[in-house]
Write a protein that binds this DNA or RNA. Structure first.
Lengths: 148, 148
DNA sequence: CCTGAAAGTGAGAATCACTATCATCTGCCT
DNA sequence: AGGCAGATGATAGTGATTCTCACTTTCAGG
């Protein structure tokens, strides 16, 4: 290989970028995916799979629900979206790269990212509990500035 | 009202306690619930609704699955159990009163409680984002001492 | 003890979110 | 250009949870 055409970074073994979202290696950028990625990139809050499905259908009436789930799964694998935890219906958020957590507004569903994090350090957990931490989930729930 | 019989605290407006678990006011302590609460109180890790159902059925073959969900929901309302978040199957953990988080073993499902918490303080979140924090969820995933 | 009303119950149907299957199609490397 | 890994839509299926309903139990008050 080698005589790269336009986007050498999107070839074998590399990740594909599109509007700030990342797809795994070997994932193809089809029209269906492109429209889903557009919708996700334009959003500023959380979304459900069905939300996305219904919106996307307005522009591409043939799009199937399975494709929505497949696309979300691809983005989840690269960390570009993350499932939101909490007591509400299942939803997802777009994630920028890097370690951060979310401030979720219980009133309007908006999600703000924050790099603040004080999860217990792996070293402390290991010393105190013998527990080998691999990762953690932290979401803060409350009311955003706009709704307050 | 007033001439309380045995357990004044379990009457109108108060919460019902049983083996460290709390039911909401006006919730009755029926035999079915008692056996479910016993199973939960005796557990030291996480459990699923179906786990609980199958175990409870061994002693009370007529118990219905809906009753299991209804009981879990009551305990959830008082904070005595909490749904576990993560990518595995849906599960719950028993929660003692007070602020704490969980160390969840990805290998055996055991759950350890910890009072360590470094969630961003509400004051900081308010100052930086105008966000009024009401609560947060923090679970740390990894491998417990026994599995390591 | 009764009794009425509220709360609880089991069974099974229904819903919801998601996954698997499959025949067909298409980006994209060579 | 050609081929094939990967993608697609439709639909059936799955597993978890909730709903419905007819019936029973609990318990405060008489």
């Amino acid at each position: 290989m080698g005589r790269g055409r336009r986007s050498p970074a999107s070839r074998g073994g590399q990740l594909n970028q599109y509007r700030g979202l990342t797809l795994p290696a070997r994932a193809r950028l089809t029209p269906q995916r492109r429209s889903l990625l557009d919708l996700i990139a334009d959003r500023d809050g959380s979304f459900t799979a069905v939300d996305l499905f219904q919106e996307a259908r307005r522009r591409a009436p043939d799009l199937g629900l399975a494709t929505v789930y497949r696309t979300i799964e691809l983005l989840r694998r690269t960390g570009s979206v993350r499932p939101l935890v909490g007591d509400a219906r299942p939803a997802y958020v777009r994630c920028d790269p890097g370690h951060h957590h979310h401030l979720v507004c219980l009133s309007c569903g908006a999600v703000e990212e924050t790099d603040l994090c004080g999860a217990p350090s792996p070293a402390v957990l290991r010393r105190r509990y013998g527990f080998l931490a691999e990762g953690h989930e932290l979401d803060v729930y409350g009311t955003c500035a706009d709704c307050a």
